[in-house]
Design a protein around this nucleic acid. Sequence first.
RNA 1: GCGGAUAUGGCGGAACUGGUAGACGCGCUGGAUUUAGGUUCCAGUGCCGCAAGGCGUGGGGGUUCGACUCCCUCUAUCCGCACCA
Length: 892
Amino acid sequence: MHAGAPISSRMAAQPETSAPMTTPERYNPRASEPKWQRAWDEAKLFETDNADPRPRYYVLEMFPYPSGRIHIGHTRNYTMGDVVARHRRAMGYNVLHPMGWDAFGMPAENAAMQNKVHPRDWTYQNIDTMRAQLKLMGLSIDWSREFATCDIDYYHRQQMLFVDFLESGLVGRRVSKVNWDPVDQTVLANEQVIDGKGWRSGAEVEQRELAQWVFRITDFSQDLLDSIDNLEEWPDKVRLMQRNWIGRSEGLSIRWALTPETAPDGETELEVYTTRPDTLFGASFMAIAADHPLARKAAGSNPDLAAFCEKCRRMGTSVTALETAEKEGFDTGIRVRHPFGVAWDLPVYVANFVLMDYGTGAIFGCPSGDQRDLDFARKYGLPVVPVVLPPGADAASFAIGDEAWTGNGTMINSSFLDGLTPDTAFDAVADRLESVDFAGTPQGKRQVQFKLRDWGVSRQRYWGCPIPVIHCDNCGLVPVPKDQLPVTLPDDVSFDKPGNPLDHHPTWKHVDCPSCGNAARRETDTMDTFVDSSWYFARFTDPHAETPTDPNAANAWLPVDQYIGGIEHAILHLLYSRFFARAMSRTGHMAVDEPFKGLFTQGMVVHETYRAEDGGWLEPGQVRIEGHDANRKAFDAATGAPVTIGPLEKMSKSKRNTIGPEDITQSFGADTARWFMLSDSPPERDVEWTDSGAEGAHRFIQRVWRVVAGAAPMIVAGDPSDANGAFASMRKAAHKALKGVGEDFERLAFNKAIARIHELVNAIAPTIEKAVDGDNQADKAAAHEALSILVQIMAPIAPHLAEECWMALGHEDMVAQAPWPAFDAALVADDTIVLPVQINGKKRGEIEVARDAHKDSVEQSALALETVQRHLDGIAPKKVIVVPGRIVNIVA
RNA sequence: GCGGAUAUGGCGGAACUGGUAGACGCGCUGGAUUUAGGUUCCAGUGCCGCAAGGCGUGGGGGUUCGACUCCCUCUAUCCGCACCA
């Protein structure tokens, strides 16, 4: 990447004469950008006053994890928010646009182990580096509200929330499974389990059951689901993903009798949950989870089964691992009786795809109606009885091949259900089983089930928010009284020993019980880092409050008007935040149930990857590229050795394909980076960072400066209303762009705004030159007006350049303080429109007609076209379709 | 495996509610200016064809006067799956 030619700093000083346009010096971002950033700071333009009475607008981007260095992948997201913030500010809103750090988490502990750095030092150093990098971008952020979630001030308030939640019954204890590394003696995250082995030790991972803290998010399942309907400013795909995640289903729980001779001692029944009771007559086996009580009991007397269950457990705790593994089962030898007295008894298998966490941990398998069950049945030679006949199929010959039939149809082979639809069969089965007495209670029960599980927040790690609870042998679980908070993390910890440093710290966990005064132990689990990010948006509304929030401030600002972040957070982070808003409302910290009114999920910045012959990754700066397109070749810039150009990937430290903001600001400037990242690709899509694209953006920045600075000394503000001809057209172009760009910003269509600004500059540049060369005051006023509009609509994207241009045009104050101009409705409307004329759906010509022209006259002018006459060749058209204001189509 | 998305020139993409496919930018080609080069300016640029014209939005099928847009189906790529953040 090369910089523009060396540049001397340019400031005002232009000739005062009405000479032809001179060529101004190049715009120098290295001088201008720091200058304007200082000016904004000194004027405190972006510090938000909670007492400001104007209408409020809260724009927030998902805060970053301080991993080390910011790359422009991060900054695209912040630039989008910044454009919104600057635009809303110009529109007269009191804008809140804060920034902070999602600062707890595993990487800090990994760094501690690898590099012998304290997680706290590593984290705060990274924050300092990244803050400095971010500031280069000229973002309009209220830095006075900055915090990191690892600040004691922040996690102190998080502990207050935890205690409140605990006392309100929103927190529970539950035994759940964790990945246990027997060599490192530690709990592993799913990402630390690779092919069932610990990432560091390589040991086979075991499952362990631990008593864990959970937030009772499932208490809100129905509300979280129903309220999605009201999140109208969220992308539909995210709403759909949340609905699917919550996973409400209506089904039937059915208790099956075990045949006494096969049942383990004391067991008489197996309860399953099904959403397809209509397929009951197609059932050919039962499948239970390896951890199902029945499986455990059966395994007790069957070593082979016990080994199979153990194998299932070693797959780890992640659903992905369970469900992508090949379907396997093991016959327990247990048999069940069909509730409707079908002649055969069904086998009970332990299956590796049945989850203990969902429903009852047991299913009945109907191979003809479920692909997974069919695969399983084929593998173990179980019967496949079709029970739903697809529409149009022949009952006598219909058979299931390799594909199950999950669709609608008519019930067959199903006794009293035959001839019904699956829907009515569902009710028939449910009604009948609800009335059958089975050991004193109905054998079947209609049930609503959610896939959503309670949120386990316990982590056996150091670098997180300590859970403020004390275990006392006398009193049980005792929350730390609020006046004894915060429970701070000890500094003197070592990461040399395996396990949780809080647990093996010599003194930290030993405390007296706040209730009875006897010796007791602190909880050594810390909270999931998702907790930290589930309420930071509320803390920003008053980041220095003694309590977690000032409810007045939180209620005034929330919900966030526009939240911007990656699609990868579409489910968990957003769902947890929605839960927190409800929990905080219930505990009096605010009165807003939905945290985010508008949501936008932006794409990532991707870059090519480069690999040396030895397989090592190279940074873009270390690579020299030759040739174009298919002939592009890469070489190691230092050695000249050939380098393989790899696919586009999300910028990441590990692939070394990152571009830092300083790489750009030192050459092209922040405005170029901001401009480029919002050009071309729609914001929800990924954008590829390319040097040529950045150069193109930079050329445009320089072009605007040339046009504005070249004309500025020769034009002044005035009354442009008498401008004629090209000058009047220029005014129309400017006002249309003003209207369009404003709308684009509100829809976050930054790429379209940029295209529109390009079009405006292309359209007006020659006319500006004419106005400068001429001596008509109205024309010069029109030029001044057009350029001022251009600068203002660019300002949210390229704020530094805009300030420089604004000053050149002779405006007082800064463009960052200027109100958004109103467009002139009369200049935006056109009297005539161009209508395309099609013949048989193919465009053959166009006609210009009055905007409100009558259908008949439009039809006549279309038929009069020479091309139309030629195509019709004297034959009358079959039909003429005139869509007013849109199109004419002639069917020949 | 389940859930969600995406696919348009050489490249990134535009096309609002079914109505001119390729806006805008990159790249490329030619020309002008200046220079040692870059810069800047003008013109051209979906494909085939001298032209008339024909063909074109991942593949196949359908609905419609008209389909990038709606329906069915197939393929490829990406995101999430509860302890990565």
